[in-house]
Amino acid sequence: MSIAVTYALLIIGALTIVLPLYMTAIIPFKTVAENTASYFALPSRFNLDNFRTVLAGGRFFRALANTAYITAFVLLGNAILMPMLSYPIARSMHQSPFYRFVYYFILISIFIPFQVKMMPLVKLLSSLRMMHPTGLSILYIASSIGESVFLYVGYMQSLPEELEAAAYIDGANTFQVYTRIVVPLVKPMMATALIRNGLWIWNDFLLPLIILNRSWTYWTLTLFQYNFRTEYSIDYSLTFAALVMSMIPIMLFYVFAQKHIVSGLTSGALKG
């Protein structure tokens, strides 16, 4: 392939990604009338009215705070609990039938589709009075157990046991061996697991929809977008202002951490 053809193809591909985003970004600056004339023309003036309406009432910032809270809660819980759960399994499953059972029992959950648990989870969470962001966070942590254990156990088994043995000889107990030797070594896999979970939770819609949609004070960014669209379905300039606002945090994150996101996601998948 000549360089010219390569560039032509690259640019065509880039346009299919950029054009929808460009259109999304300029729609909120224009009135509906202006948009109906042309979706791709630049706005005649820099009109921020739609963004003011979106930000009025504090719902947007509440949703942003809720999403950040849930994501942070889950990632912290995952970073602490998942390696802890995986380490005994990784080190004992070849000797202990109990841990072997635990491993396969947990792996089954990867194959159970979400729909099977969806309705009972709503009943369960409402009877446990957990229909709020913290309750949803705990549910997210639990839901990620299958995949996390799969990733961590595989990774831990590839780590040499000699370092741990040496620490035991120096008189360390199991907890110290875990925190000082094992945790630093699993950091690459932790990065992979946290990025995967972080993107999933930040962008998830179905679970917030069935657990948190009762009060706007519980809304996440996806619920905010969804409800905003339902409420102002006719004025799509306004809906798109809400959409653009909701996309800004993850876009900023992507611009600054793009390299780490990509390397984190690929390294985990290639090992797993």
Binding site: I17, N203, S246, I250
Partner: peptide
């Protein structure tokens, strides 16, 4: 596109 939500 991978980092956007499906809803967006």
């Amino acid at each position: 596109p991978a980092v956007l939500s499906a809803l967006s």
